[in-house]
């Protein structure tokens, strides 16, 4: 099988759609094959962007982050040693890039709110940054509920938030989440239990 694939590459009958991730990675590292990298991007772009959306709740920011993720992936492929699945590796880069983006945005929001107030004093209008996509649901009650829940998710500790987003936005199994986060299965179970309980305290009024 291995020999067969190598022959395919040698005779440049490049059937990228049938190539495994592993073979694509080899093509990229050994021959700097951009076509192979583009195939990899196309395979994983939806996964990366939708994961980013889970953290940022904004499609355009998530797409920006995804660009950084794939450039980072391109740089890091020589270090990737097939010990884990490629998707696990890509998830880790995506999570880290998303969290870094949020930290940066938080800093910038603090700075801009300071300058915004200064401008207000000077009679200038305070500028608004569009942080979150408007929910498309027309039901007012549901919209308010989503907004509350979004805020609550954003306030969860990083670990709980990562597990929650991989679980709800990516439908990853507990085992897959454990691999991405490099923690035990029972740690994932506990993180998600605490995440849901924390959200419940905000969302559900106890009778």
């Amino acid at each position: 099988m291995q020999v067969f694939t190598n022959q395919l590459v040698k005779h440049s009958v490049f059937t990228k759609n049938e190539m495994s991730d592993k073979n694509l990675v080899q093509e990229i590292i050994q021959h700097n094959n951009h076509q192979a990298f583009e195939e990899l991007v196309n395979r994983y772009k939806k996964m990366v962007i939708t994961t980013g959306m889970g953290f940022l709740s904004n499609y355009h920011d998530a797409e920006d982050i995804a660009q950084d993720v794939f450039i980072e992936l391109y740089k890091s492929l020589p270090e990737f040693r097939n010990e884990s699945k490629l998707s696990t590796w890509i998830y880790r880069i995506t999570v880290n890039k998303s969290l870094n983006f949020l930290r940066r945005r938080k800093r910038e929001t603090i700075i801009s709110s300071f300058w915004g107030d200064k401008r207000k004093e000077n009679g200038e209008s305070k500028f608004n940054i569009h942080l979150i996509d408007e929910p498309i649901n027309s039901n007012l009650e549901t919209r308010e509920q989503h907004r509350l829940l979004r805020n609550a998710i954003n306030k969860l500790p990083d670990n709980q938030r990562i597990a929650l987003i991989l679980s709800t936005y990516q439908e990853l199994s507990y085992k897959e989440i454990a691999e991405v986060m490099e923690v035990s299965l029972s740690a994932v179970e506990s993180l998600l239990f605490r995440a849901k309980s924390n959200l419940r305290k905000v969302m559900v009024k106890q009778k």
Partner: peptide, 14 residues
């Protein structure tokens, strides 16, 4: 609610 929110947000994927 979470699954509903996720569906709602992910429907904006292009």
């Amino acid at each position: 609610m979470l699954l509903d929110l996720a569906n709602n947000e992910l429907s904006k994927y292009n």
